[in-house]
Design a protein around this nucleic acid. Structure first.
Length: 350
DNA sequence: ACTCTGATTCGAGACGCG
DNA sequence: TGAATCAGAGT
DNA sequence: CGCGTCC
């Protein structure tokens, strides 16, 4: 997932990757790709080798994680927007297929594992987050008064669109291709207790690397993304070098017809452009993914329905009542102080 | 020396009790 | 699933 | 703080 080595490449420039404190995001609206978050949560809870399961045998880890995470974000003064995936685009088929195979392999290895450590390792790797689980998350989130956006295709590109149109300040994700989709900024490790929070602004990248947005997309395609193969022999260094020299993948490939350039590059690294190298479609997709129009989206944070949350978590999913009540108390406090601060600062940005 | 590539390893939640 | 790091190979 | 529990 994401753009291969983009983070590593960006480290070569000063001040492109910025360290941030959680307080910097107080009062800000942040879009969150929920499926990645749920995966992280469920995998993390698998540390012990089991899922949280209710009396029906259904997994409940995702609900606990989303419940806690949402409360803690509100306590920090952050306004989260959760974005759900729709149908994956065809271009992603090959990636999805290989992931399914990976999971299959992991399941097999889990069964074959003879020690506990390995069993847990492959147990984690074979995580599948179901539609049903995501629907349950959506219900809980809405009971908590948090807005939900259902993307027609990928949550990624929808998050980027929200940020581009100024409906949110930025996108919290680990996936660097949010920037390729044109989000003005990415926020990594936002809710991590161990890792430093990092912010990367698209404008800073373009300025420091001296690229325009289209060239940045081409750079990402050369580095390697989910939608397109790469050119063998071209890694971090050459990708950047080629974009700087030729201005685009298109021009680079055209230049290969000129014998001297062709010789230069073939002698240098035997790099060959693969058959069916669909960099054009990929670039188009990054520029114009299928997303919901921001004009049709009205983000609103409303008072949580505390009673229904209790009913949902305790009666329906078997969580411990007093624990959920504690959470709800925190939620109530967070919501009230959020509202208060909001009134004091009428023109908070995103 | 530089760059790409592949293998490997680790860690990814939140809480509270003792 | 990725990200960081290391070893190895190719130029 | 480390470790086990949460369901």
């Amino acid at each position: 997932m994401g753009i291969k080595n983009l983070h590593k490449l960006l480290r070569k420039w000063e001040n492109v990757i910025q360290e941030r404190n959680i307080q910097d995001f107080a009062g800000k609206k942040i879009a969150i790709d929920i499926s990645i978050l749920v995966y992280q949560i469920v995998i993390a809870i698998r540390n012990t080798g089991t899922d949280l399961v209710n009396t029906n045998g259904d997994i409940t880890s995702h609900l606990l994680g989303i419940f806690n995470k949402t409360i803690s974000m509100l306590e920090k003064g952050i306004y989260p927007v959760y974005v759900f995936d729709g149908k994956p685009p065809n271009m992603k088929n090959s990636i999805l297929k290989s992931r399914r195979e990976q999971r299959k392999k992991a399941k097999l290895k889990m069964k074959q594992a003879d020690n506990k450590e390995d069993k847990i390792k492959y147990f984690k790797r074979s995580v599948v987050v179901t539609k049903k689980q995501l629907n349950e998350c959506s219900q809980l989130i809405q009971l908590m008064g948090i807005p939900v956006v259902n993307a027609p295709q990928e949550a990624d590109s929808q998050c980027a669109q929200l940020a581009k149109d100024g409906l949110v300040y930025g996108v919290s994700t680990e996936d660097m291709d949010i920037l390729t989709f044109g989000s003005p900024r990415i926020i990594r490790n936002l809710s991590s207790k161990k890792k430093e929070i990092i912010q990367i602004d698209l404008e800073k990248i373009l300025k420091k690397l001296e690229l325009n947005y289209l060239q940045f997309i081409d750079l990402c395609i050369l580095l390697g993304c989910d939608y397109c193969t790469t050119i063998p022999g071209i890694g971090m260094k050459k990708a950047y070098q080629l974009i700087k020299q030729f201005g685009s993948i298109e021009t680079f490939i055209e230049s290969l017809n000129e014998t001297d350039i062709k010789k230069e590059y073939e002698n240098l690294n035997k790099s060959l452009v693969p058959e069916n190298y669909n960099y054009r479609n990929t670039s188009n997709y990054f520029q114009n993914p299928i997303v919901k129009d921001s004009k049709q989206i009205n983000l609103q944070w409303t008072e949580p329905d505390y009673d229904k949350i209790l009913e949902f978590m305790v009666s329906q999913f078997g969580f411990n009542k007093s624990k959920i009540q504690k959470g709800i108390a925190r939620l109530r406090r967070a919501y009230n102080s959020l509202n208060k601060n909001n009134k004091q600062i009428p023109h908070y940005i995103c």
